[in-house]
Design a protein around this nucleic acid. Structure first.
Lengths: 342, 342
DNA sequence: TTGTAGGCGTTATCAC
DNA sequence: GTGATAACGCCTACAA
C-alpha cells in the first residue's frame, strides 16, 4: 500500500518543522497567516489526513467500541447492532463487531484480542455457552482493568456494570394475561432448551400470570426446544397430545414454526388457538396468519447501550467522579395481529 | 480507564532495559534463561499484553478490515457479513462494520474515516444512492491510495478491483426457464424501483428466458416497487388487473408480500400461480406456502470476499508482484419448495 | 513566529 | 547478554 502523506513529508517539502505544520493545520495563532496558508494549501493538495493510529496511541483513546453478539442472523441482535452502529457513528465512534457464535471460547478470545488497546469499551450479550457455564471471569478481568462495559439482553448478575434489558417478566405476564382475558385456558409456553436469563424471566412471567388467574401450571404445556431447531416432530407431538388453546413463544421463529405445525394438525388460528411471540421482526409481519408479538425495540436498546457506553468512556476523563452503574429497562410493546383475537 | 502494564513498567520493576524485556518475551536467545524466566513470570503475573495500537503504528498494519454494507437488516447482507467475520476472525483480523444505510454521504464519510489508518482494506457493497448517482470517486481515491478493496454483490464497472458476485443473469434465466417448463405462460417480474446492478442483471435473465422460449415481453407484467415498501395497493392492483400464472421476485421479501397479496385475491399457490424469489432466508422457509427460492450463499460470498481481501493485504508485502484483479462468481442454487410445482 | 524535545508502546539495529 | 537509540506519526510544552 502506498504510504499516505504525513506531517513529516509536508514539513520536509515546505522546509519548516513538523510542529509548525501541525500547528498550522490546527489553525494555531502562533503561526503566521502566510505559513498557515502555505501549509494548508499543500495539505489540501495532497489530501493530508492525520493518521488515526498515531492519534490513538498518543491520546490513549481509539474511538472504537467493541460489540460482541452471540449471533447476527437473529433479527433481534441485528436490530440492536443497528442501533449501536447508528448512535456510535453519530458520535464519531467506529464499531468493531465480533460474533461469538454462542461459543464461550470465541467470546473469550475475541474479548482478549480487542481489550489490548483496540477499543475504548465493550457492548455485549452473553453467548449461550457462557450463560450455561456461568463463567464470567473474562468479563471480570475486563472490568477490573477499568474498561467500560455495557451488557444487554443476555446479562448476568455476577458482573457489576451498566446494563440494558427488556422488561421480560412484565411483558410475558402481560401477554399471558391478554390471552387469559380472551378466554384462553390451556396456555402453552414454548421456550429454549438451554438456559438463558431472558427465557427464564419470561417463563416466570408466564407462571405468575397463570397463578394470579387461578390457572394450574401444567408442565406438559411447556415445550423446550433447541435454540436452532430443524426438526418439527417434537412440536408435532406436543400439539397432538395436548389440548392447547394458546401459546406464548420466547421468540418469533419458535412462534412461526409452531403456527405452521399447529395448522398442519388442523388447528385454526386464532379461532382454535392463539399465538404470541417475542421479537417483532419481519417474520411476525409476514407470517400467515400475521403474528401478534412483543416488540423488543432492539434499535432503541442498541442506541441506549451505545449512549451509556460512550458516556462512561468520555466521563472516564474525570477520574475523580464516583463510578456508578445503572440498569436501563426497555419496555416491550404488544403488537396485535391476526394470530390473536382482538 | 486504568493504564495497562507496559514493557516500560516491567523494565522498571525488574531493573532491566526495555529492550531486554521485549526480547525476553519474544524468547530471543540473546537473553539469558534467567532473565527470560524472570521477565516472563512477571509479565504473566501482571498479565502483560502488547498494546495493539503501538504495534499497528510500528508495523503499519492494523489487522482490521472495514466492511461497509448498505443495510444490516436484510438477510442477505447479514449472511455475507457473517461469512466475512468468520473468515477474518480465523485469520486474526477484526472487522469494523459500518452501515451506509443506503446513503451516499454516509458511505463516503465512513470510508474516509476508516481509510486514515484504521484498517488494512475494505469490503463493501454499494449503497442505493451511490448506484443511482453512479458517483464512485470515493472508491477511486481509496484504490489510488493503494488500499485493497473488494466489492461484492452491488458492484460497479467503473472501479477496477477484486469482486465477488452472484451469477444473477443465469440464475434468473434458470428460474424463469423452470417456470416455463412447468407450463407457465404469463410470468411476471417484481423488481426494485431504483437502479441496482443486480436487479438489472436479473431482469436481463428474465427477458432472455422469455425470448428464448417465444414468450412475449409484456411491460404490464413488470412491477417495480420501492425498496422498503409498506403499502400493498400497488401490488394488489397488479394482481387484479393482470392474468398472471407465475412470478419471479428479486428478493424474498417482495416474494412473500406478493404471495400474501395474491392469496388475498383468491389465487391458489402453486396451482393458479407460482412464485420464485431471490435470497433463501428464513422467510422463504417459514412463509405459507414455503417459497421456492434462489439461495445466494451469502456466507460463502462473504468468506470469499474476505479471503480475496486478506490475500491482497498480505501480498502487498512483496511490492514487486504485478497487481492482478479477479471477479469470483458464486452460483445461486434453486431451492424448490411449495410455491412452485415440482 | 518558529523550532526542539519528549513521549505514547513497541521493535529492530547496533554498540558495549 | 544487555542496553541505548531510532523510528512508526502525532501532539504539546517549552525554548529560541
Amino acid at each position: 500500500m502506498k504510504r499516505k502523506i504525513t506531517l513529516k513529508d509536508i514539513a520536509r517539502e515546505l522546509d519548516v518543522s513538523i510542529s509548525t505544520v501541525s500547528k498550522a493545520l490546527k489553525n494555531s495563532r502562533e503561526i503566521s497567516k502566510d505559513t498557515k496558508d502555505k501549509v494548508k494549501a499543500f495539505a489540501k493538495l495532497y489530501s493530508y489526513k492525520p493518521n488515526i493510529i498515531a492519534l490513538s496511541l498518543k491520546q490513549r483513546r481509539t474511538k472504537n467500541i467493541g460489540v460482541i453478539i452471540p449471533d447476527i442472523v437473529h433479527h433481534f441482535f441485528t436490530t440492536v447492532f443497528r442501533g449501536i452502529e447508528l448512535y456510535a457513528d453519530a458520535k464519531g465512534y467506529n464499531v468493531i463487531a465480533c460474533v461469538s457464535d454462542e461459543s464461550f471460547d470465541k467470546e473469550v478470545i475475541n474479548m482478549e484480542l480487542l481489550a489490548n488497546g483496540s477499543i475504548d469499551g465493550f457492548i455485549m450479550a452473553l453467548s449461550a455457552e457462557t450463560q450455561l457455564k456461568n463463567d464470567v471471569n473474562h468479563l471480570k478481568e475486563i472490568t477490573n482493568q477499568g474498561m467500560p462495559l455495557v451488557l444487554f439482553d443476555r446479562i448476568t448478575d455476577e458482573i457489576i456494570c451498566d446494563k440494558v434489558i427488556l422488561n421480560d417478566f412484565e411483558a410475558s405476564y402481560g401477554a399471558v394475561k391478554k390471552l387469559i382475558d380472551n378466554g384462553r385456558k390451556r396456555i402453552a409456553l414454548i421456550t429454549t432448551e438451554s438456559y438463558f436469563n431472558v427465557s427464564e424471566k419470561r417463563a416466570q412471567g408466564y407462571y405468575k400470570a397463570l397463578k394470579d388467574h387461578d390457572l394450574e401450571l401444567d408442565e406438559d404445556l411447556i415445550l423446550r426446544l433447541p435454540y436452532q431447531f430443524e426438526n418439527e416432530t417434537k412440536s408435532e407431538t406436543f400439539f397432538k397430545s395436548n389440548k392447547i388453546d394458546a401459546v406464548l413463544c420466547v421468540n418469533e421463529i419458535f412462534a412461526v414454526r409452531a403456527m405452521k405445525t399447529a395448522q398442519k394438525n388442523g388447528l385454526k388460528i386464532p379461532e382454535d388457538i392463539s399465538f404470541i411471540g417475542f421479537t417483532d421482526g419481519i417474520l411476525s409481519k409476514l407470517a400467515t396468519p400475521t403474528l401478534t408479538s412483543l416488540a423488543q425495540h432492539g434499535e432503541k436498546m442498541g442506541k441506549m447501550a451505545a449512549k451509556m457506553l460512550i458516556e462512561k468512556i468520555e466521563r472516564d476523563d474525570d477520574a475523580a467522579v464516583e463510578e456508578t452503574f445503572r440498569t436501563e429497562i426497555i419496555e416491550a410493546t404488544l403488537i396485535e395481529r391476526e394470530s390473536t383475537i382482538n
